[in-house]
Amino acid sequence: MSQARPGSAEIPIQITINGERRCVELQPWTTLLDLLRHDLALTGTKKGCDHGQCGACTVLIDGRRINSCLQLAVMQDGKAITTIEGIGQGSHLHPLQQAFIERDAFQCGYCTPGQICSGIALIEEGNAVTRDEIRELMSGNICRCGAYPNIVDAIQDVLVQRSGVIREAAE
C-alpha cells in the first residue's frame, strides 16, 4: 500500500516506458505528462493545454491512447507507457510517421507526436475506415496549423497499406 502525507516522502512506482522498466519516486501531484517532460526528459510528448482539451499530450498507456496531462503519474504504477520516442526514431520510422512526412500532415510540429500516437491507436482500434470516421475519431487532437486534411490522408494511407497486407496474408 502506497501512502504519503502532503510534502512528505515521494512514492516509488515501477513503470515501463518505451519498453524500458523504470523505478521512479515521485510526488502524488505530478502528472504523467510532467513526469515525462520534466523528470525523464522525454519532451516529445507535448503540453498544449494541460487540461485534456487539445490532445497534444496523447500517449499510449497499455496500448490505449490517453491524455497524459490528466493522469497522475503515481497511478501508473505497473503500467506500460509508449511515447513518440518509443514509436520510431532516426531512420526507423513507423509507417504513420513516414506517411505524415509524405502527406505534409503537420506544420509547426507541436501537435504532431500526439496526432501520431492517436493515429496509431486509431488504426489498432479498427473503428475507422471512411474519412468521416477518421475525422471524428481524430477529433481529440487539435491542430491549430490546420493540417487536418493531410492528417486524414496520412492515416488513410496507412489503413490502406494495412488492409493490403492483411489481404495478402489471407490469400
Binding site: 500500500m1 502506497s2 501512502q3 512514492i11 502524488p28 501531484w29 503515481v74 504504477d77
Partner: peptide, 11 residues
C-alpha cells in the same frame, strides 16, 4: 494544484 496525500485503496 495543491499538495495532497495519496492512498491507493485495496478494498
Amino acid at each position: 494544484m495543491n499538495r495532497f496525500s495519496y492512498h491507493r485503496a485495496e478494498t
